[in-house]
Nucleic acid binder design. Structure first.
Lengths: 226, 226, 226, 226
DNA sequence: CATGAATGAGTATTCATTCAT
DNA sequence: AATGAATGAATACTCATTCAT
């Protein structure tokens, strides 16, 4: 083996080691963030926002408080991330479960079903979203709010397109699809929130019947009558 | 005078004295409770839920902290009382502002307007209601919970009656007025909650336009089409 | 012993007990305040303002943090009290040690000596005063500042009166005694502060000589020359 | 070529290479130090002493925290350097602003004015100086302390020379110019410190009037009376 | 040489609640 | 029945410093 070869080998070996180190670090960082978010999510869902402090997150994540602040600028930032995550999942879910459906009205119904399912199957994420929505007054700084709203907007945009599609196909009659999408979402959100009152205030036989009854009323309100 | 007579006389005399004292005590106790609730309410309306602590209530009421805990088991108990108050205000407001209206559809619209107004003008009462409603676990004693539910049920019942009225007058078509009332309320609750997103997710020109647009869609969904 | 007497005795006994309790409580409160101030003073002088936190004061005083805040509204309030105390002692000291002296110029010199002595014998209190004087920018809220300044003003007022006396006796010539008093105090304060530099920047044989040399220069500056 | 010769040649060759490298390294090191001090200075002037942390210096300097600790043992060490800078600025300022002035009494007055201006215009440098001066214990390594004292001594020396000059010119009468310089500086330092009390303790119309009134009294105290 | 992740004690202040009197 | 002193854990966030890589 001559010098040149040896040198080249050495260099490449070094590169591998260095690349590996940098990559590993990056991966470690991502892992730490996830570790923190996991702890935060668990606490939030177990004890509620009020009792989810940075100190408790740190303890749960088996990290120091300082470390939390190394990875996140704020307590706010931690929760914002969780909300973005949740909205992302919701969005993908909606996309995949409206994909095979032809008729726009069925698509809207599917959206509503996905929302209810999401609130049950991803109860944790739903609660995070719900938490901030039902929080009295502002909690997020503007920048963070914008970024969350953007994720939320994706969901709404999808519904809006379904409505527009229905209008084109002469199934729906609605001059402002965006408005209806917002209305639709606000309503099903309220309906899902109210689920916990079944048996007392909501007397209906079964909640799912009540939910679908309501969703259909919502869809009917833009259905074109011949 | 024999012993028995003397005894009876004595007992009845005692009763008179004790009744007076007991009644006075009762009245004093009620006065103190009111005094505490007054202070709590004032602080709630001035500083919001988060900044209304027992210590501050005590200072405001010119009583000691210990006294607060003599009359209320918890901080939550104080707010539970306020929530009942809030629901009472909402109920009376709805009654009075639907009173002069003839047409059931206008009445429903008025209900929705009252709800929005209440969330703005009595923002702190609204927050208290919302706080306890979006809380996952129950921490009220059964009696307290029942009494709150009762107040809430009154509101729904009133809406149900409006729907039933509309059905009788052939303006609405709805086989289950109670269901629709619940749906209506859940929807407008969601719509009010979503107000904080105006400007980002809710793009509509003005929130009130969006709100009324939505409320009318809701009412349209049970309107009889000729 | 008849009933009336017994009743009166009982009442008076009760009063004694109650008075005692109230008084004892008052004394306890004063004792606690002193306890807190003692701890605060010790820490301030040992570790400096920056390291004198409420938590440390509490630990030193063997009390809980909450208790500190029960007796003082602020960290600021604690230190303000210390400063007031110190200024009070200084004032009394100046009064007593200028009392027997006839000549105004000797009186002023005595003031300066008291200030130096105070900085040595009550080094702790002097340091507290000095600490806040040498603190960059504001530390106290307006109300507190006013109250401290009032104590300080007493000291200055006394010096001003000495100057005015000297003017009346034709020993001093100074149209604005208040101005001179402030100047005099500022100067001797600076001189005392600079004591720690003796041996390096201040080369003079003995510090006390340097101090008296300076004080006499100050007094000479208003002495009437015949 | 014997071993010894080879060795000597090798050593000298090495030295050449190393000297170059060492020098470059030295220059790099100096550059890094400067880079750190620049950042520290900027933060100090922008946010004040309290908010200038090592982490923030590192961020500002676009270096890692570790690097700061490679070049400076302490946070204090960084500020010690800045203090030297501050004293240097003060010295140069005094030199330049007494330069054109003829009369020694006017020169002294100018010194006093420079001191006041410095405390205002270079408030943060003044704070650093004051901070270390009013600190009770020494925490500088001897070398650092010496170097600071030297800078401070330069300022005093200059004042002493002005006094001596005045004595020679028969304007001043002062057997110990060094003593007076120290006295003068201690006094104006006290006067500047006391500025924050204007409006309460210092009642004078305007602080600057009070300051100049005082400075003139100081100068008068060594002025030869004919 | 340089990095930057990690630490954990530290900050002032608030809080619901207890309990001896 | 009422008081009010006392608690101490809790809050979000910062800091100087260390150390493996």
């Amino acid at each position: 083996m001559d010098k040149a070869v040896r040198s080249r080998l050495f260099t490449s070996a070094l590169r591998v080691v260095f690349m590996g180190a940098r990559e590993r670090r990056e991966r470690d960082r991502e892992k730490r963030r996830e570790q923190i978010l996991d702890a935060a999510r668990k606490l939030l869902l177990k004890d509620g926002l009020a009792r989810t402090s940075v100190n408790r997150i740190a303890k749960k994540a088996e990290l120091s408080v300082g470390t939390i602040y190394f990875y996140f600028a704020n307590k706010e930032d931690v929760f914002a991330e969780l909300q973005r995550e949740g909205l992302g999942i919701l969005h993908r879910e909606i996309l995949s479960r409206t994909d095979g459906i032809e008729k726009p009205d069925r698509k809207l119904e599917a959206c509503a079903r996905v929302y209810l399912d999401f609130s049950e199957e991803n109860a944790d994420y739903f609660d995070v979203i719900n938490y901030f929505l039902s929080q009295p007054r502002i909690f997020f700084t503007n920048g963070v709010k914008k970024s969350i709203d953007l994720q939320g907007a994706k969901v709404l945009k999808h519904m809006e397109q379904i409505v527009a599609e229905g209008v084109r196909e002469n199934i729906f009659s609605e001059p402002r699809p965006a408005n209806f999408a917002a209305f639709f979402w606000a309503s099903i959100h309220g309906l899902v929130q109210v689920k916990k009152l079944r048996g007392t205030v909501i007397e209906s036989e079964s909640y799912i019947d009540f939910y679908l009854y309501s969703v259909n009323k919502l869809i009917d309100s833009i259905r074109r009558h011949q």
